[in-house]
């Protein structure tokens, strides 16, 4: 009885979240709804007596896999949402028809599938304890598939590492190297680091160069990125003798 109450509350929530996952525009919202679907699945597992499976579902899928998903999605930015324009005309109706057809096929097939043997029942399966029973199955009957899957996962991880790997020609310079380089290169002017933007200037924005003690602007104080983008203001207008220092009458 409590199980069916749980089912009729959590089930619709899970389905709504699953549909919402397909329909929302922002990728992070999709990921969150998917995480919620996984948590509800864990609730169902626990309600049906598979305590270990339910908890591991949360630890592994919600805690690790979805977190990695989010990690990547967050790099996309808050305002990024999927483009919904059709690049190939008529793709959407075809895709929807195919998805419904495939879904119907799967439901009808799986709905009629049988296990090929009688189920033994939860009490017998959990006779030695839920964790112990699962461990016994994994390391006796299913030891080969289990090891094969773990080998597959390790291969996938190795593959990802190989793809992302690049060889350095020179070792990455350490903090010490950089410090030595600053002191041993020709001048000591930048040994203490470059000036920050806007120092002693009339504005402290990042695109305003710092002023040197003699009032001349220091273009080196602006980030390389801003300079490359052309976002840097013309530095001569910030030179002290160019700036209008006359104080106007206040109203």
């Amino acid at each position: 009885m409590p199980e069916s109450v749980l089912f009729w509350i959590m089930g619709p929530l899970a389905v709504i979240a699953a549909i919402g996952m397909l329909l929302v525009k922002k990728a992070v919202h999709s990921a969150l709804l998917l995480a919620w679907v996984m948590i509800t699945l864990a609730f169902f597992y626990i309600a049906q007596g598979a305590l270990f499976l339910g908890i591991v579902q949360i630890v592994v899928y919600t805690g690790a896999v979805m977190m990695l998903f989010l990690f990547i999605l967050m790099l996309v930015g808050v305002d990024a949402s999927d483009s919904l324009t059709e690049t190939i005309r008529g793709l959407r109706p075809i895709a929807i028809t195919a998805a419904i057809g495939f879904g119907g096929l799967m439901v009808s097939l799986i709905g009629r599938a049988t296990l090929g043997r009688e189920s033994v029942g939860l009490d017998q399966a959990n006779a030695a304890g839920n964790v112990e029973g699962l461990a016994y199955q994994l390391f006796s009957t299913y030891v080969f598939p289990f090891e094969a899957v773990s080998a597959l996962l390790i291969t996938a991880a190795m593959g990802a590492m190989v793809l992302a790997h690049h060889q350095r020609e020179v070792p990455r310079s350490t903090q010490r190297d950089l410090s030595e380089q600053r002191f041993r290169s020709g001048s000591l002017a930048t040994a203490a680091g470059l000036p920050g933007p806007g120092v002693f200037a009339r504005h402290n924005a990042v695109d305003v160069p710092a002023l040197l003690p003699d009032g001349t602007p220091a273009p080196a104080s602006i980030s390389e990125t801003l300079r490359a983008r052309g976002d840097m203001r013309d530095s001569s207008q910030f030179q002290l003798d160019q700036v209008n220092t006359e104080v106007k009458d206040e109203k």
């Binding site: 805690g63 839920n130 964790v131």
Partner: peptide
């Protein structure tokens, strides 16, 4: 029976 794993699971959702 999986109390400690439960704590890990809750912590991972908290993040």
């Amino acid at each position: 029976p999986v109390g400690v794993l439960y704590v890990l699971a809750v912590a991972s959702v908290g993040v």
